[in-house]
Design a protein around this nucleic acid. Structure first.
Length: 271
DNA sequence: ACGCCCTCCTGTTGGC
DNA sequence: TGCCAACAGGAGGGCG
């Protein structure tokens, strides 16, 4: 579910309610996530101040004096701030009770998300150390994308989902960025010229920024930390629009499967 | 090194 | 109405 815009929207929603708060207690209702939640989590977190909430790719980092909580929302996860004694919902797996009286709840039906605590610098953590540059920084530019696509026979759409080469882009925004860059998703990555790469980087940055402004994309169940859906779905050009007219040229949008994931594109606009 | 495929899970949807 | 297969926003890991 959540790609960079949804994770960033969650981060921003958490800031006002969680940053600067102390964790009073921790309840783990389900420890079987993508990786098992350590039984020590309550001991490790209780009493700690949440100093900062950062994002690296699709990971949220809650920085505390003694370490960092690394959270990934997987396909179906969300982090919500609830006031007081709200009833527990199905799949509310972890709750951090704050000194404000509010609580942070991690809900994840499919349990592909993770909730890990580390005392090492997050950038050295196994899950983060090999990630590509942040897509909204200057390190991610046309020259970079051109360099990492050299010699790669994989379809450009699939390459966009490889977090070691490009981060933050998931299945929705990969199709959307390629539409905006007017590039066919099936093209071998190595066929992209430097100019194509510049165009594609611009398209990725634009679609991610635009989606952040819209509060992310809610297809089915994504909600922000404050429970609000994102409304970028209204601005999607191709994703989940198979057979519907392209919003630019009216040609029916096509759907195909690449690497067991659905891809959408306009055969007229994208070459 | 690269690229493909499987896997982890639950919930929803669409076809028969 | 019921059943069942297909599919869903991620990404690590294993294999050839």
């Amino acid at each position: 579910m959540p790609e960079l815009p949804e994770v960033e929207t969650t981060r921003r929603g958490l800031l006002r309610h969680v940053r600067g708060r102390r964790i009073q207690s921790v309840l783990v209702h389900e420890q079987r996530l993508r990786w098992p939640v350590t039984p020590e989590l309550p001991t490790l977190l209780s009493g700690q101040l949440v100093r900062a909430i950062e994002r690296r790719a699709k990971y949220l980092l809650l920085r505390m004096p003694n370490g960092t909580l690394i959270v990934h929302l997987g396909m179906s996860g969300n982090l919500r701030v609830v006031r007081g004694a709200q009833a527990l919902l199905p799949h509310d797996h972890i709750e951090l009770q704050l000194d404000s009286g509010a609580a942070l709840r991690f809900n994840d039906p499919r349990r592909f998300g993770c909730f890990l605590y580390t005392t090492e610098a997050p950038r050295h953590h196994k899950l983060l150390k090999d990630l590509a540059p942040e897509p909204l920084t200057r390190r991610f530019d046309g020259e970079y994308l051109h360099r990492v696509t050299r010699g790669r026979r994989v379809a450009i759409k699939s390459l966009l989902l490889n977090g070691r080469l490009v981060t933050g882009v998931g299945n929705i925004y990969a199709s959307e960025a390629l539409f905006r860059a007017r590039l066919r998703p099936q093209r071998q990555a190595r066929s992209l010229t430097r100019a194509h790469c510049t165009r594609l980087v611009s398209a990725i940055r634009a679609v991610l920024k635009s989606a952040i402004r819209a509060g992310g994309t809610t297809l089915r169940d994504y909600v922000s930390a404050e429970g609000a859906p994102g409304y970028f779905k209204q601005k999607l050009y191709v994703y989940e629009r198979a057979k519907l007219p392209c919003r630019r040229c009216r040609t029916p949008v096509r759907q195909l499967t690449q690497g067991q994931r659905s891809t959408y594109y306009c055969p007229q606009c994208q070459r």
